[in-house]
Design a protein around this nucleic acid. Structure first.
Length: 732
DNA sequence: ACAGATAGCGTTTTT
DNA sequence: CGCTATCTGT
């Protein structure tokens, strides 16, 4: 028997099977918490270390930069060396890399720029206006969705027939938009994928080059791939192309965690994979290392209600754990208050706040939660706010850099021509736009020509000339300076910094700080870290970095804080204590999901994802009534709660409800002070002293006997829930 | 050019 | 209800 390789020893049997599979292709169906990333990382290390595979011939694809970074880090840790030759990144990052390397083959200028969705929407809106279409009838948002969706399906305008008026008009917008992008040297996110796909499809030499190079292709979160992404994998692997040496493809995914169907992801790609790659071996990872048995069984029961699953049942040899708490709140304020109270208790018991996550279906729910946490003085962090490179002031600064890097970049031109204001109003800009359209040239060229031909004269002409001079001079003075200095120069010479400095208020102050932070981001930007871009100027590399990684989780504050996020953004994370709130019909599952087919099952998968985030304890809450858009709505508990075996649910009693009235009025329990005294030994309104928190007033209680807790409003630190047995309160 | 009023809209998110 | 994008008036 073969001596077991050290890479395999810390793995379970199924994980080992997956890591060391030698067949041509492999599908790993990896349940939540089953060690998916671990398997992927170990497989790469195993290929390199034991199979003599060169890192140079490995391609690993993820969806997010975070996942890519983590994977690379862990592979390097396992191997004890850096593996720069390996291509590892997001679909978009890798497509971008291909386009930079072959810009000529795909008809792009060398300095093409990337358009983010914000820029894209502005541009589309411009197109709709210039086509003289009614924005009410043809909303830019819908046009954007249409265009991106078509691109995700691999479709160009000429592929569309346009039988009905809607399709015809959107096709027209798509066409105009694409012309504008091409003229301006702009590439949107979907275009990165589509162009790279066309490159591989249409250019035999390029295709075969990469097919020969990448012997092993590994794809993470495969259930999230859309049509073009999967096509891309097929092209690169050479499957069905009579390749002499088709690549080995490993895909990892979980059909039960497919929650991005609404943005074009196709779970069906997993089944399709089994057809397209018939020799593929399937390995199921079903042992869960994360959650208690109770949580797991409940989640299994819920997801079992979906049809057409590939089939997978998670198990654990861990403990049964506590039951799942269910709290029925009177309204969303009550719900939030309950959650804050529970978190306080958890914290009292010596647990970390960062181990707690509060998950919700929609971002709007965070507001009330924030208020409650603020009130209870519990630090929290919200995921998914505006990201650094998406901020207005940062985008302004980047637009200057983009225009320096590419005069064609109309999106950048539009953004900053009058920011800060330099006397170029809508009227002048309109003339430049018309000029550009008539001549079929970028706005920059149009502006210069119009000034030269004295069509733009006087104040407007001078202002436009001053602007173009500013950009030209900026480029001259930036020269070969370090990136940070270049940005600093751009921010200052353009007047952008002065503009924001002149503004008043906290907002403006943050903006100035963000501009300064942009300079330090440049100082810290190491092009070499970004293996993607070699033959590209530092400025160009940084701009691409900013566009493709607009995320970059804002500087991790090291404060111990509760995590607030949507169910979607919780995917891939885990927490000892998880609250799922707003679990009501109409909200979760969402109203819209009930009308469209297939959507309800996706909501159920979302519920499954949420539940399986919890390691020790899961608490589900819902509100009988909730204000939505200012209107009070009454809803029933979500059907998903009904799918959890009743014996695993523990109904938590309301802490402070004898009548609904007391909720409206505040936290004071009105009816039962005698009962409170007999059950907890304290009465409401009583003054007490705590060794750490000082003096305060008892304002609420819960439970009885050894489990009873009292809420004390401390004079110094505000209100806290305390376990009576632990806290050793002194009566005073 | 800019402040102030108002109409309109409103899952989920990455790149 | 609260945000934003657009409109209106100076």
């Amino acid at each position: 028997m073969m001596h077991e390789h050290p890479l395999l020893t810390q793995l379970n049997e199924k994980q080992r099977d997956a890591v060391s599979a030698t067949g041509r292709h492999l599908l790993v169906l990896a349940g939540a918490g089953s060690g998916k990333t671990r398997v992927l990382v170990h497989r790469i290390a195993w290929l390199i270390q034991t199979q003599g595979v060169s890192p140079h011939s490995i391609l690993a694809v993820t969806f997010t930069n975070k996942a890519a970074a983590e994977m690379r880090g862990r592979v390097e840790q396992l191997l004890g060396s850096s593996v720069r030759a390996m291509w590892m990144g997001t679909f978009h990052g890798l497509a971008h890399r291909l386009l930079r390397a072959h810009y000529m083959d795909v008809g792009l200028p060398q300095n093409f720029q990337i358009l983010d969705s914000d820029d894209q929407q502005r541009l589309i809106k411009r197109m709709i206006r210039s086509l003289n279409l009614d924005e009410k009838r043809w909303p830019p948002k819908q046009a954007q969705w249409f265009i991106n969706h078509k691109k995700d399906e691999g479709l160009r305008p000429h592929h569309l027939d346009g039988y009905d008026i809607n399709e015809r008009t959107f096709k027209e917008i798509y066409e105009a938009y694409q012309v504008a992008c091409d003229r301006a040297g702009l590439v949107d996110f979907a275009e990165l994928l589509l162009r790279a796909h066309e490159l591989l499809r249409d250019n035999k030499a390029v295709r075969e080059h990469y097919q020969r190079r990448f012997r092993h292709i590994l794809v993470d979160e495969f259930q999230d791939t859309n049509t073009i992404q999967y096509s891309w994998i097929k092209l690169l692997s050479g499957v069905g192309q009579d390749q002499e040496y088709p690549s080995y493809v490993t895909i990892v995914g979980d059909d039960d965690q497919s929650i991005y169907g609404w943005r074009g992801a196709r779970v069906e790609n997993i089944q399709q994979f089994l057809q397209d790659y018939p020799q593929a071996l399937t390995v199921r990872l079903e042992q869960n290392y994360r959650s208690t048995n109770t949580i797991l069984t409940a989640a299994n029961e819920v997801i079992a209600n979906n049809q057409g699953r590939l089939g997978k049942e998670l198990w654990t040899d861990g403990s049964i754990g506590e039951p799942i708490d269910l709290y029925v709140a009177y309204n969303e304020m009550d719900e939030a208050r309950f959650i804050a109270g529970q978190i306080e208790q958890w914290h009292e018991q010596g647990n970390a706040l960062q181990d707690v996550a509060v998950l919700y279906r929609s971002n709007a729910q965070s507001r009330v939660l924030e208020e409650a946490l603020l009130h209870a003085r519990i630090p929290y962090r919200i995921y998914g706010g505006l990201r650094f490179f998406d901020r207005q002031e940062v985008k302004d600064a980047l637009a200057y850099l983009r225009l320096v890097a590419s005069r064609q970049d109309d999106a950048a031109f539009e953004r900053i021509i009058n920011t800060p204001t330099r006397g170029i109003g809508d009227r002048t800009l309109g003339i430049i736009r018309d000029g550009g359209r008539e001549r079929g040239v970028p706005l920059w060229d149009a502006a210069k020509q119009l000034v030269q031909e004295k069509i733009l004269t006087g104040r407007a002409g001078n202002a436009v000339a001053a602007f173009t001079d500013l950009i030209d001079q900026l480029e001259d003075s930036m020269g070969d300076l370090p990136l940070g200095r270049q940005v600093d120069l751009a921010i200052k010479n353009s007047g952008l910094m002065a503009m924001y400095q002149a503004e008043k208020g906290d907002k403006a102050e943050t903006r100035v700080e963000n501009l300064q932070e942009l300079v330090s981001a440049c100082d810290n930007f190491n092009q070499l870290d970004d293996v993607i871009l070699e033959d590209v100027s530092p400025l160009q590399a940084f701009l691409a970095h900013a566009a493709l990684e607009s995320g970059e989780e804002q500087a991790e504050e090291h404060q111990d804080a509760v995590q607030l996020m949507t169910l979607h953004s919780a995917k891939g994370l885990e927490f000892p204590l998880v609250f799922m709130c707003g679990v009501e019909e109409g909200l979760f599952p969402s109203q819209q999901s009930l009308t469209e087919s297939g959507r309800l099952e996706e909501e159920r998968r979302l519920c499954y994802v949420g539940m399986t985030r919890a390691m020790q304890k899961l608490v589900i809450t819902y509100a009988e009534s909730r204000r939505i858009y200012g209107q009070e709505k009454f809803s029933a508990v979500s059907r998903f709660v009904g799918e959890i075996p009743p014996n695993m649910l523990h109904h938590v009693r309301s802490q402070s409800r004898t009548s609904h009235h007391s909720h409206a009025l505040g936290r004071f329990h009105t009816g039962a002070s005698h009962e409170a005294f007999t059950q907890t030994g304290y009465s409401l309104g009583q003054r007490v002293r705590h060794s750490k928190f000082g003096e305060g007033t008892v304002i609420n209680y819960e439970g009885s006997g050894p489990q009873s807790r009292v809420q004390v409003n401390f004079d110094a630190v505000g209100s806290k829930w305390l376990a009576v047995d632990y806290a050793r309160l002194e009566r005073c």
